[in-house]
Design a protein around this nucleic acid. Structure first.
Length: 263
DNA sequence: CCAGACGTTGTT
DNA sequence: GTCTGG
DNA sequence: CCAGACGTTGTT
DNA sequence: GTCTGG
C-alpha cells in the first residue's frame, strides 16, 4: 500500500518530467504523510473568473482522443501543479474527517465505489514522487524501508482528487493514492502497492475527455520489480513530525541494499 | 418509496 | 451525489 | 503509514 | 483495543 512517500527531486526536475507550464515551488520532502499537503499534477482547470472564454477544453481534439504512444513528449492536455490535502473527502461528504481514512483506493474497484467513482471519471491526477516507505515487522520491532526506482528516478503515483465545500463556503481540495497488487519485491512488505504509471500513460490518465474508466485498465498493474529497489532506513522516518535527509539514511547496522537480485 | 451508506489497511 | 437495502 | 489519544461538567 | 490526527 502507500502511506508515506518522498519527493526529493527539484522543482525543475518535476516541471521537466511532467511537462508543467509553470515551475512549482516546493522544498525537498522526505516524509510526506496522510493529512499533509501534497503537490499533484492534473489537467489544467478553467480559471474561475477568467475573462477569456476558452471554448471547450480540447474536447474535440483528435490528438486527445487517440492513446498516447511511446513517450510523454507532447501533452494533449495542458497540465498544472496544485496543492491538495492527502485523504480524499468526497464532495458530498458531511464531515471532512472521512478523508483521514480515504488515503488509498483500490484501483480494481475505484470505477464503481461511490466514494471514488466520479473522481475516477473526471478528476484523475498524478502525484510526483521518488520513493515510498514500507514497514516490515521483525523481532526488533518495525523496520522501515525506502522503496524507489533504480537510479532514484522520479515517478508518478496514480491518484484521484476532489473538492469539498465547507458550510462556510471554503473549498477543500483533497486526493487519494490508488493501489494494486504488489510485484514480488514489494510483496516482501505488503499485499498492496501504489499504482505507479509510466510516462507514456500520463497523457491518457490526465485526459478529461476520457470519462470511461475502463479505458485505463491496461495501466492498472504492478510496476515491474526489476526496475525497483528497497533500502532499510532509519526509524527516524516513523514520526511524521520528522523531515529531512535523516529519514532516508541507511538503517544503522544494515547498510544493505536489498533488491531483486540480491539473495 | 425513504434511509443510510459511501473506504482502506493490517495479519497470525 | 448515487447506490443499496428495507 | 505511525504516533498518540482515549472525557465530562460547569461557566464567565 | 481502536480511533483520530499528521
Amino acid at each position: 500500500m502507500c502511506g508515506r512517500f518522498t519527493l526529493r527531486a527539484t522543482p525543475e526536475e518535476v516541471a521537466n518530467h511532467f511537462r508543467l507550464l509553470d515551475l512549482p515551488d516546493f522544498s525537498p520532502r522526505y516524509n510526506i504523510g496522510p493529512g499533509q499537503m501534497v503537490g499533484i499534477v492534473r489537467a489544467q482547470q478553467a480559471e474561475p473568473g477568467a475573462e477569456e472564454r476558452t471554448p471547450e477544453i480540447n474536447a474535440a481534439s483528435p490528438k486527445s482522443a487517440s492513446p498516447a504512444v511511446g513517450s510523454d513528449a507532447e501533452p494533449a492536455v495542458k497540465r498544472e501543479w496544485a496543492w491538495v490535502k492527502w485523504g480524499l473527502v468526497p464532495h458530498w461528504a458531511e464531515d471532512p474527517s472521512v478523508g483521514n481514512r480515504l488515503i488509498n483506493a483500490r484501483a480494481e474497484t475505484v470505477g464503481t465505489k461511490p466514494a471514488f467513482r466520479t473522481a475516477a471519471r473526471y478528476r484523475r491526477c498524478l502525484i510526483p514522487a521518488d520513493g515510498f516507505y514500507e514497514w516490515k515487522a521483525s523481532s526488533r520491532g518495525k523496520q522501515p524501508y525506502l522503496i524507489r526506482l533504480r537510479g532514484d528516478r522520479l515517478f508518478a503515483l496514480a491518484g484521484l482528487w476532489d473538492q469539498w465545500h465547507s458550510p462556510t463556503g471554503e473549498i477543500l481540495e483533497t486526493c487519494t493514492v490508488l493501489t494494486v497488487e504488489p510485484n514480488p519485491l514489494v510483496a516482501r512488505f505488503h499485499n498492496r502497492m501504489p499504482l505507479i504509471l509510466p510516462p507514456e500513460a500520463y497523457d491518457l490518465w490526465l485526459n478529461p475527455t476520457i470519462i470511461q474508466f475502463d479505458r485505463l485498465r491496461e495501466w492498472i498493474r504492478p510496476y515491474p520489480e526489476d526496475e525497483m529497489e528497497a533500502v532499510a532506513v532509519s526509524s527516524y522516518v516513523n514520526s511524521t513530525r520528522h523531515e529531512g535527509p535523516r529519514c532516508v539514511e541507511p538503517a544503522a547496522g544494515t547498510g544493505t541494499l536489498f533488491d531483486n537480485n540480491s539473495s
